[in-house]
Simulated scan of single mutants.
Amino acid sequence: MSIDQHGDHVLQGMSIRKLPKVSLHDHLDGGVRPATIVELADQVGLEVPEDTADDLADWIAERSDSGSLVEYLKTFDLTVGVMQTREGLTRVAREFVEDLAADGVIYGEVRWAPEQHLSGGLSLEEVVEAVQDGIEEGEDAAEQAGHDIRVGQLITAMRHTDRSLEIARLAVEWRERGAVGFDIAGPEDGFLPSRHREAFDYLASEFFPVTVHAGEAAGLDSIRSALLDGRALRLGHGVRIAEDLDVVSRAGDEVLVQFGDLARWVRDREIPLELSPSSNLQTGAISAWGEELADHPFDLLYQLGFSVTVNVDNRTMSRTSLTRELALLAETFEYDLDDLEVFQLNAAAGAFLPVEEREELIELIGEGFER
């Protein structure tokens, strides 16, 4: 089945695109429109490998589909390069929110690393302000178009640099002005969350929510460190928690599984897994299980009761949308609307919002799926 990034899919007579969705793992610099890259690159004098939006989209997709997280991350040199001015940051953030709204998202959390956007002379405070301006402009534009959406910032530190405490303080400073949580991203293997224990200690002292990239390019040790050192309330990807599951036997639809202590803790504590199916294939995160979506341990984790959520990770690099990811999962694992609703309810329950607002999200999702 071929489902394009901007297409729709009908399941049980319902448009997946029109269903209310929650997006928890969506990178700002991974969702820049190719046409915007071409235009902004011309303005700032950045050389791009292709002159048209379509050709550039092809170029990015080809290099993203490498099976290596390291190679996958190289495509961000281009998107980050056009996000070094106030105007560029605001525009990208505005369009990002508009694209979320067009995808049926009613609540989203956008993650990005302010420290990567300073080469144009802006300060950390100024880049966060520029992105927040864009988010609010996008929310207003969506409202005028008849779509209610709210988007919060996940202020992110790069795990291979030494600015995490500074970025953590920045996130807390913006707590009442758009920031809803903190993350660390970048090269995962060899850079355990424990390297940033001081930042995580500070965030814990401020009761500020944390999600941590773990269990993607690195395995169980990264997940363990995210939980113990990072006090992570969610796991960014976390797909390799399946390495702590031993499938003892299969008989038809019945699967007997032996849990490791870490997997049981994540399952029993209902720690949300921010799974991104297409991205997990591209980066080789599921290489231990296979190379096709049908090999992804998503369904195993779901059937075992893990709090699975569905995410795009990087819309541009994976040429995807939340609608497309849900459609692909439905096609591959024969999910119905009830399953898709569970994924959205899991995401709503894991959102970095006050409980009253999470309950409102859950009600909106229920109403939307019932219609």
Rank of each mutant, 00 (worst) to 15 (best):
A232I: 12
R150W: 04
A199L: 07
G236K: 01
Q153M: 11
R159L: 14
I167N: 03
A232Q: 10
S164M: 02
R175P: 05
D201L: 12
R175G: 03
R150Y: 00
D162F: 11
Y202W: 11
G146H: 03
V210G: 08
P187G: 03
I184F: 06
P209Q: 08
R177M: 08
L220H: 05
L154S: 00
L220T: 15
G230A: 15
V151T: 00
F207W: 11
L170P: 09
T211L: 09
G152S: 10
A142G: 03
F208V: 06
D229I: 14
V239G: 09
L235M: 02
V212P: 02
E176N: 11
L154M: 06
F182K: 08
A204H: 13
R177Y: 03
A145E: 09
L233W: 05
I223G: 02
H196Y: 06
A157G: 04
M158E: 08
A214V: 09
A218E: 11
A171M: 10
P193K: 13
A214G: 06
R159E: 03
R240D: 01
G215P: 02
D162T: 08
I155C: 04
D244V: 15
L220Q: 09
D201W: 09
A218C: 01
S222H: 12
F182H: 08
S222F: 07
L154E: 01
L192M: 13
A204Y: 06
G186T: 07
A171P: 07
W174V: 08
A242G: 05
R169M: 03
V212R: 04
R150G: 04
L220W: 11
I155D: 03
A142C: 05
E243R: 15
R231I: 10
W174K: 11
H160K: 12
A242Y: 06
A217M: 06
A199N: 08
L235T: 07
L227F: 09
A142N: 12
S225E: 11
F207G: 05
D229F: 15
E173V: 04
L192S: 15
F191W: 03
V212T: 10
P187R: 03
R159A: 14
E173W: 09
R159H: 05
H237L: 14
T211K: 02
H196A: 14
E243T: 14
L235S: 03
F207V: 14
A214L: 13
A199M: 06
P209F: 00
G178A: 10
L220P: 02
Q153D: 06
A179R: 10
R234S: 02
E243Y: 13
V180Y: 07
P193E: 01
D201I: 14
F207T: 14
D162W: 09
G219A: 10
T156P: 12
L192H: 11
E206H: 09
L203D: 01
G219S: 12
L192I: 13
E188K: 04
R175W: 02
R224M: 13
A218N: 08
D244L: 15
I184N: 00
I167D: 06
V180E: 03
D148K: 15
F191H: 13
I155H: 01
H213G: 04
A185D: 05
T161N: 00
G152Q: 06
A142H: 11
F207Q: 12
G178N: 09
M158T: 10
D189K: 15
R240L: 12
R231C: 04
D201P: 02
